[in-house]
Design a binder for these strands. Structure first.
Lengths: 209, 209
DNA sequence: AAACACATTGTACTTTCGGACAGGTTCATT
DNA sequence: AATGAACCTGTCCGAAAGTACAATGTGTTT
């Protein structure tokens, strides 16, 4: 996947060429539409010379092109990371990032992932711990299942049939059914579909009567 | 950095060898202390056959060795990701992750980063920002369905049975089956469970033969 | 008018699922 | 030794799900 760097100077930094020998540079976000559109690009926004107030708008404009966008700033800040990631960018890194790190970021974002500095990521996790704790409580029922039942439930959540589960766990199809019956009773699911949805934190409409 | 896989079978999966030709396998976490300690290792925990209740303990034990630890599970869950990441692991991924992804994960964790499935990361971010980004990604395949088929598919995604769908749409149960057969063919789903999961953007493991 | 997509329903059939009933083992606790 | 929990398995049976083959009616497009 080719790399496009949006930078005011319209020239590639050495590090960028080092990381991506075939990268190209454009001066402004609107010019992105001038690059050949057949291929899949990653867009790198050099926000080093862009006022903080204007960065969000630029990020939005870049995201509108449909390509994964990585914002590069002189001094990564949590608040800015929040707003930009919420705006749809997929990467947020230091503008002086080493070439190796640039390649790593490229890998992550081209696969649909998000990238931000590790320390920042850990902060995010710490912050969201409490909020998600509530979600976890919903699956407190899951802990009521025995070890074997949990394995069966996981397989159902992946769309496996009884036969497949039996083969995977090396037990009889009959045993799978036994575990399933226990699971349904404990989790209040009506059938494997509702179990599969419940396991994935998806609410179901039709409860058992 | 060499890779050590902790797996009950004590044998490396093909994917793992594919990703890391020089990887080694050990049967249990305690055996980790037997590997030469001069070098820097990444430890991969195969938790596929480990009861959920015991996973946290295993993760803690592995982390105690001082190496970066990646936990691999059959069905990544947010709650589990939290408890394990809080316990000190640096990666949390699917046990069936492709070799390319494994390499990506290795890069991230060896540089001190955390890795988890992109969708999960986005969920965490969404929770943190409190902006419930219910980004319902438009499923291209979904548009291939006729109007009536879409309605049936939606009901299945809510956990409805054929009888319930028939009542809701005021048609015969037989007609529901007809629509379902068409839906399965168009979306490549094997049964209603896989359809329900697909409709909710959840990947399934067992495809149709 | 003809062709076509869509929606609907029927009969008949096979497969899968889930429960009822009845056991068996292993292992830890009492 | 006894109790119980977890795990495993068997047979039987009914319900649900899914498929095959066939058909009708409604629209719209050509």
């Amino acid at each position: 996947m080719p790399q496009v760097f949006v930078t005011p100077q319209n020239t590639l930094r050495e590090r960028w060429r080092e990381a991506f020998p075939e990268a190209v540079a454009v001066a402004e976000v609107p010019h992105l539409s001038t690059v050949p559109s057949a291929e899949q690009y990653s867009v790198w926004l050099d926000l080093g010379a862009v006022p903080v107030a204007e960065r969000l708008a630029q990020a939005r404009a870049a995201c509108a092109c449909g390509y994964p966008v990585v914002a590069m700033v002189p001094l990564p800040r949590e608040g800015e990371a929040f707003s930009l990631l919420s705006a749809g960018i997929q990467g947020y890194c230091h503008v002086e990032a080493a070439s190796g790190q640039l390649q790593e970021i490229a890998q992550v974002v081209t696969r649909g992932g998000l990238w931000m500095p590790p320390t920042m990521l850990q902060r995010f996790l710490a912050v969201s711990t409490r909020s998600v704790a509530a979600v976890q409580l919903g699956m407190a029922e899951f802990d009521e299942l025995t070890g074997r039942e949990q394995m069966v439930a996981e397989q159902v959540a992946l769309g496996a049939s009884n036969r497949e589960i039996a083969e995977k766990l090396e037990i009889t199809e009959r045993t799978v059914k036994a575990h399933l019956s226990a699971i349904f009773a404990k989790l209040g699911a009506r059938d494997r579909v509702q179990l599969a949805l419940k396991m994935n934190n998806i609410p179901t409409q039709h409860k058992k009567g």
